[in-house]
Amino acid sequence: MNKQQGNFFSDTLVMTKRSIVTILRNPLIFIPNLAISMFFLFVYEAGLSGIANLPAFEGANYLAFILPVSIVSAAIGGAGGAGQALVKDLDNGFFSRLLLTPSSRLAIVLGPIIAGMLQLVIQAGLIICVGFFLGLEVAGGALGVVVVLLLTLGWGLAFAGYSVGVALRAKNAQSAQAGTFIFFPLIFLSTTFVPYELIDAAWLKVAASINPVTYLFEAMRTVLIDGFTDTWPIVLGFLVIAGLCGITITFSAVSAKKAVSTD
C-alpha cells in the first residue's frame, strides 16, 4: 500500500500549485486587481506630487514616497483574493476534502496564502515598472528594489493569512469581504500621504505609530529615498512584518481546524 503521511513541504508545494492554477483560470478576477493598483499610482502621482515641495520632504521624489502606498493597497485585491478563494473552497465542499487528507492544517492554508502573496509580489513588480516609466528613482538601486519586493512578500503573506483566517471564520463571501475592511484603517491611519512630522492631528499620530503598516511604509521609503545609509527603519520594517505574518498565519491555521465543526 502506497499511503503515507505527506511531507509538509511537498504538501505546501502541491497546495500552492493548485491555488495558482485556480487563479490563472479566472483572469477576470486578477486582471482588474492589477489594473486598479496602477491606476492609484497614476492618480496619487498626478494629484498629490505638489506636496513634495514642502520643506519636510527635503527634496524627496513624491513618486518614491507614494509608491509604497500603491504596493500596500494592492494587497486588498491580490493577497485578499486568497480569502475569496477559500470561501469558494468552503462553498463547493473542496475544503472538507482537503481536511480529510493527512496533510497538515498549516500546509492546507499556506497554499492559498502563498499564491496570494505571489500575486501581490507580481503586482508590486509591475507597479515598480510603471513607476520607472513615470520617472521613479530608487536610491537603494537594484538591491533596493529587491528589498522592497521582499517587504512586499512579507506583507502579502501577512495580509493573505489574515484574509484566509477571516474567510474560515466567516464562511461566506459577504462576511469575508467585510473582514477586508480592516484594510482601510490600516492604510489610511498611517503616514499614507505625508511623512509623520507633517501629520496634524495628535490622534492620527498615535494611530500611525501603533499601525504596523506605518513601519512597512517607512522601511520601503527609506530604501527608495535614502538608500541604505540608515538601516534601522528597514530592519524594523522586516521585524514588524515578520511578527504580523506569525500572528495572521497562526490565526488562519487555527481557524482551519474549526472551519467545519459548528461548535
Binding site: R18, V21, R25, N26, N92, G93, F95, S96, R97, L100
Partner: peptide, 10 residues
C-alpha cells in the same frame, strides 16, 4: 461526503 468535494476549476 453528501456534498461532493470538487474544485470546479481543476
Amino acid at each position: 461526503l453528501q456534498e461532493t468535494g470538487i474544485d470546479p476549476d481543476l
